[in-house]
Write a protein that binds this DNA or RNA. Structure first.
Lengths: 190, 190
DNA sequence: ATCATTTCTTAAACTACATTAAGTTTTTTG
DNA sequence: CAAAAAACTTAATGTAGTTTAAGAAATGAT
């Protein structure tokens, strides 16, 4: 089992070796090939996923049949369709590997057990969810306050290396416009 | 002190009377007049607010000078600019009462203290933040998957009573279009 | 009740971005 | 390394939603 998750947890709380050993059997570690799916529309989301290395994305298919990416998760981020995961309902989302990715998964039937055995982790996940909430508030403001071109230039200036990592059509839908329009923007200037 | 918050907490965890008495001095309860502000741009967000009765909204002013509402909070919802609240940074948001509103506030200097004295509340806030995260995932999908008109009709069918409660210009910006366009949509059909 | 303020409506002109479709380049795979 | 598939570009045409501006209606204050 990779130590990346334990290191991440220890950035927020102190988890002893004994506690790590309690946690370990509740986790699964595995690799996902590029373009493989961890979740497809109509299925029930089985786990909450932590990215050790690589990149996952959450997307859905809109009425016109186009993929709309709503979230990316790179190293040290958690990703799931939370409603489907918590209530074991059918999902309207896909979770796909944008790159070959190593993940740690905590499955639904272990999720409550984890908090029962290690109440300390309530705090870790509260802090993670706070970060998620901050990211959501930032994202909504970002989407509402700028034009498509500004959003692209701003995102590109904040995360230039990430922009190179994913196909432009994924990025375009994440930023809220079409791949053709992104092409146009990029052609305008250097 | 209103019991609404304790009732809400007890929907998620068991909080004894003793524990309620530990919590009480960390909270402030007060009324906010319609249109009054709990936070203005440039200020630091002092508290996380729980709505007992009424309605608060979170908004910012975009480049064109227009108000963009990003969140509403009605009865039993928490609202804050989380980044400004947690790190005591200047905010780019306003929090305003859309109606005369009764709130309970937990101020920043009591927030960590609260978790220290009542670690049980880690779980309560983890669960609240999970609900927020679900709401964010739903909201992003909603914004990306429908036209402006569909968003209005869908929202109106889900929350007809809420649509009557707030001015249309607040709703329009929340749904991602102009008040003029909302007027146009409403004129089309009953 | 009356005046002031806020909110809502209407309509014409405008624009940012979508759509369509065809061609080009890059990446993947056997 | 060749063929297929995936990703990207270009350009013409189309449209959902914005802007502007003025008037009408509703709400609030005294």
């Amino acid at each position: 089992m990779s130590t990346a998750l334990y290191q991440h947890i220890n950035r927020f709380i102190d988890l002893s070796n004994d506690e790590q050993e309690i946690l370990a059997p509740l986790l699964k570690s595995f690799s996902v090939k590029k373009k493989a799916f961890l979740l497809e529309e109509g299925q029930t989301c089985r786990a909450n996923y932590f990215v050790i290395k690589g990149c996952l994305r959450l997307y859905f298919i809109d009425i016109k049949g186009a993929e709309q990416t709503t979230q990316f998760a790179i190293e040290n981020w958690w990703i799931t369709d939370l409603t489907s995961f918590l209530f074991q309902e059918h999902s309207e989302f896909y979770i796909q590997a944008a790159e070959a990715t190593e993940v740690i998964a905590i499955e639904h039937h272990h999720y409550d057990e984890m908090f029962h055995k290690l109440p300390k982790l309530e705090r870790y996940f509260r802090l993670i969810l706070q970060k998620n909430h901050q990211a959501s508030q930032r994202r909504i403001k970002f989407l509402y306050s700028q034009t498509a071109e500004e959003r692209y230039r701003h995102f590109n200036s904040l995360f230039p290396e990430f922009v190179q990592r994913v196909p432009q059509y994924m990025l375009a839908s994440y930023l809220g416009f079409t791949p053709e329009f992104l092409s146009k923007i990029r052609a305008k200037k250097i």
